[in-house]
Amino acid sequence: MNKLALILVVLVIAGVSAVAAIELSGRTVPRLKVSTTTSLFDTGLLDNIADEYLNNYGVRLDVISLGTGPALDQAGSGDVDVTFVHSPTLENLFLTDNSGGARKIIAYNFFAIIGPDEDPAGIENLSTIAALQKIAETKAEWVSRDDNSGTNTKEKALWKSVGFPDFTALYEENWFTATGQGMGATLVVANEHRGYTITDTGTYLKYFNDNLINLKTFVSSGKDLLNVYSVMAANPVDNRENVDFQGAIDFIEYLISDNGQSFIGNFGVAEYGAPLFNPAVQLLKENADSEIATWIRDTAFFENSECPQQYRLGQEQLYQ
């Protein structure tokens, strides 16, 4: 036999066995694909949940971190089974175009407006809207992710209510810097520029505690800064035969279970001395008239429900 052909055959066999080995080693347990946003992913919450879920339920979570839009698109195309995001407006679109459903609100926390200790714009003790107005007036530097992430979506909504309906108009302002990058990189830029920015608490605490930044929190509560996290399953319709719908529902059931909720509520306590996420399931179930529950209903419910019936994909048990 021709030796050259032999070499090629050996190369193919070696390559195929290498692929088989790595694929098989990764497929010893069932896997579930979860898409999420970078800021949520970067807190480490999902890695911790993944370990917990693997140990207790024997399923490995493959967590894919993207911007909010792409994270939802991945679920919409059936490339992942579950998506874990925090952008009610986009979630609403996701439901209405039947990309997926079985939405459950899992947790909440608050965004924070942070800036240099010296507070050149003087926003200490102001409300969110007043603080942003002050920053624009004094032309103190503002650093924006400008990456269409959930945080950035929230930021855009805030600027709109301050009088910048067209976010792109801000590009013209010389006090405005757009990084186009994730939360971590944006925090570092804001720190270098001694500017203000809006951040999720998880990433902020992480960077702050590790001394990577020294920016101070000025505003960190109020309906304006509420950040609501929900989870949705990909719709197993059409040609999306790869979607593991049952696996997705199982995972959602875990997240809303007492175990899942307390796991989320305790995450970060050891490291930061305070939880990064507040469980939402019990809060909403109690129908309590607590201020925060009302805020959540106002900002993250559609048609007075966390998931209108037609989008529940037959999973009524999630809403009992």
Partner: peptide, 24 residues
């Protein structure tokens, strides 16, 4: 690959990832 832990995470993707997470 999406840098899935224990599956598709390689050196370069982990470098990028840990940087974003502040794990410099």
């Amino acid at each position: 690959g999406a840098s899935l832990r224990g599956y598709t995470r390689v050196m370069t993707t982990q470098i990028a990832l840990e940087y974003n997470r502040g794990e410099w």
